[in-house]
Write a protein that binds this DNA or RNA. Sequence first.
RNA 1: GGCGGCGUAGCUCAGUGGUAGAGCAGGGGAAUCAUAAUCCCUUGGUCGGGGGUUCAAAUCCCUCCGCCGCUACCA
Length: 521
Amino acid sequence: MKSYYITTPIYYVNDVPHIGHAYTTLACDVLARFKRLDGFDVFFLTGTDEHGQKVEKSAIAAGMSPKEFTDKVSANFRALGATMGYSNDDFIRTTEDRHIRSSQAIWQAMAARKTPLGRDNIYLGKYDGWYAVRDEAYYDESELVTGPDGKKRAPSGAEVEWVEEPSYFFRLSDWGDWLLAFYKSNPDAVGPATRLNEVRSFVEQGLHDLSISRTTFGWGVKVPGDEKHVMYVWLDALTNYITAAGYPDVEGEKFRRFWPADLHMVGKDIVRFHTVYWPAFLAAAGIATPKRVFAHGWWTNEGQKISKSLGNVIDPVKLVEKYGLDPVRYFLLREVSFGQDGDFSNSAMVRRMNTDLANDLGNLAQRVLSFVAKNAGGEVPQHGALADADRALLGAAGDLLVTIRAELDQQAFHKALEATFAVVAEANRYVDAQAPWTLRKTDPARMATVLYVLMETIRLIGFALQPFMPTTIGRLLDLLAVGADARSFSHWDWALKPGTKLPAPSGLFPRFVEDAPAAKG
RNA sequence: GGCGGCGUAGCUCAGUGGUAGAGCAGGGGAAUCAUAAUCCCUUGGUCGGGGGUUCAAAUCCCUCCGCCGCUACCA
């Protein structure tokens, strides 16, 4: 059985879950569900990133130990998973023992090996720079401004001071040529293509060595052999992807089956960590690199950039409460070309719900199924010989699997949905052209064939949409009396059996009607 | 500043040399199985401005204008 390993980033516990987190994991969930239906042995991973100075400080501020704090906030992300219907197979936390072992192991593997230029991958140096205590951040000399009092200040206005601390470094500067060769021989390693261009030009500028340890705080993975240091959060965080695959047990069945990962899904803000640092870390440790990293875009809210200070953060839980889970899942992956930025607006959401889901798909199912219930005895109709129009429609529906498989392998969710809804539209045209309400009087046998063709088409549409809207489509397949054991793509060509008793039809995608503006007073 | 991308119908976008396209929105009609849903027809663009190459350019080249992304160690 072919394997498929897909990951979300691990989410930083200092954040409150928002639409961005929900979106990334949703995209992975759809791919994971699709691959399972398509016969793959899927490993779908998400989790939380729990180390670092900010977490330590937040815990103190909340009057908790870091462990208590992270237990609490990590649970918020698990809760989001339940709300959104995610099907992840594992949920990793970087504070787990398995991950600490794994992080220390990759450090040692990197330390034991040489760069392409024959030098040590890791060396002890000192990390220095202009540090703003207020901002808890380092600034480059070029960013600083000197005030009238002669003091250097950060762009934020905070005073900076020159600080030095001992730090281990990763000799990233030796890996530039290797990375460029990597991109060249693996053009699919980074998507969309525009991100690959950016990353390549970044690497072409030349790479600096990377500080990979800190001594100024303690909430992290201890550096093996020098416990005054904790590992740089990104090295720790990225390593989660191999931890969950069983690292350092590289001979284990799980690691051999799932590593290298098929896809790391990320937001566009963390492309560099995943396409420069991560491959370099892995190569330095002698571990295979992931097959693909895909970066999606950001959402705006009613045309406005989303920010905490504007107070327009989108809470996915509220969206689901208002519009329902499956419509939200559909909208997020249909509305924008995946990889691009997109805008969330109430009007666009409602338009998708009512036009695509209620009018086109929901009404197609309803008009066909209720017609069958009333005029075909409430069972799968017995079909006769197929006419050209029948074969055309069934052919279009049958082709969907090949189409959406190809689109989803390129993370083109919107195109997969577009292709599927083109068949929905074709089916609606077919209903009008065949007019079963007329055939009922003139040619009942032909009517039965038409209804059968429509039911089969709806079954295939449902199959294609299962990963996107699992709950509602599950109900649709129930209405078609497709057994739970007959819904994987190995049953794509399976056909409905005439005479099968059908349950009473019921609506699947209600129209969304805005609440009437509440009368004041 | 450097590198890259974008600017096509009211809106969102497809279209990389050969008589301008889709969806939604707008207008008209048909049908009546259905969640007043569906189906058909239709209005609408000097393809950001200018110049050039070519028998022919949204599509190639130059230039100008506007917008956006990246340009390192916060997750």
